[in-house]
């Protein structure tokens, strides 16, 4: 295998990653606080899930690649209203980096503060928008497009169709910023890329822990 493009990336500890504050535990007097925190921490540190997913990978490579991605967002209205930047972050934080055995959140490629969600007033006819700015680990990262594509595939298959997804490279973090931005937001190119089995299998591996 060729040398990694960024051999020594900065890694965030999983416990430092942003997570939703559970409103029921906001009263700090609650004796369950510690326990809840531990449980939430464990669920983010998904070692056991990761192991199972990597076993699944062997099966995936033999075919039936599409099935694993068939997860659709729950149409439950109450949950639908909850789609905010934290929700989007949770959907994409656990995507594996194509190069390192780490997630995009751990590598700070995706950051909660770089996700903007604009909700339309009426869900039945107004469009909503998700804008995500990704920060490649190094400015000449040739995998930036692949990472962006992984995020797009993940969101397109999870979010209701009223969402328009815009994925951009964070300003000044990549030498081919405009080029990558254009590719990632070209519907036709993305559609064609997703029909490329080789590329799709790489993306599926990135999404194995989601």
């Amino acid at each position: 295998m060729s040398d990694p493009i960024n051999a020594n990336p900065t890694v965030l500890d999983v416990s430092e990653l942003p997570k939703r504050q559970d409103t029921s535990t906001k009263n700090s007097a609650s004796p369950h606080d510690k326990l809840v925190e531990t449980i939430l921490g464990l669920s983010l540190d998904s070692d056991s899930e990761a192991d199972e997913a990597s076993k699944d990978d062997d099966i995936d490579n033999d075919g039936e690649l599409g099935n694993k991605l068939e997860y659709k967002y729950d149409d439950d209205d109450d949950e639908d209203e909850d789609i905010d930047s934290q929700e989007i972050f949770d959907l994409i934080a656990t995507i594996n980096d194509p190069e390192h055995p780490l997630t995009l959140a751990q590598l700070a490629v995706v950051n909660l503060s770089d996700i903007t969600v604009t909700q339309g007033a009426d869900k039945t006819k107004d469009l909503s928008e998700v804008l995500i700015k990704i920060t490649p680990t190094i400015t000449h990262c040739s995998l930036a497009t692949l990472i962006g594509l992984g995020i797009r595939v993940r969101l397109e298959r999870c979010l209701p169709p009223r969402f328009r997804i815009r994925i951009l490279i964070k300003e000044g973090t990549h030498q081919s910023e405009n080029q990558v931005n254009k590719q990632l937001n070209d519907k036709e190119r993305v559609a064609a890329a997703c029909e490329n089995e080789q590329l799709l299998s790489v993306i599926l591996q990135m999404l194995a822990n989601c």
């Binding site: 039945t124 006819k125 107004d126 469009l127 209701p160 169709p161 009223r162 519907k187």
Partner: peptide
């Protein structure tokens, strides 16, 4: 507006 609902 919404020629195909919320679809493109």
């Amino acid at each position: 507006e919404n020629g195909h609902g919320i679809n493109e």
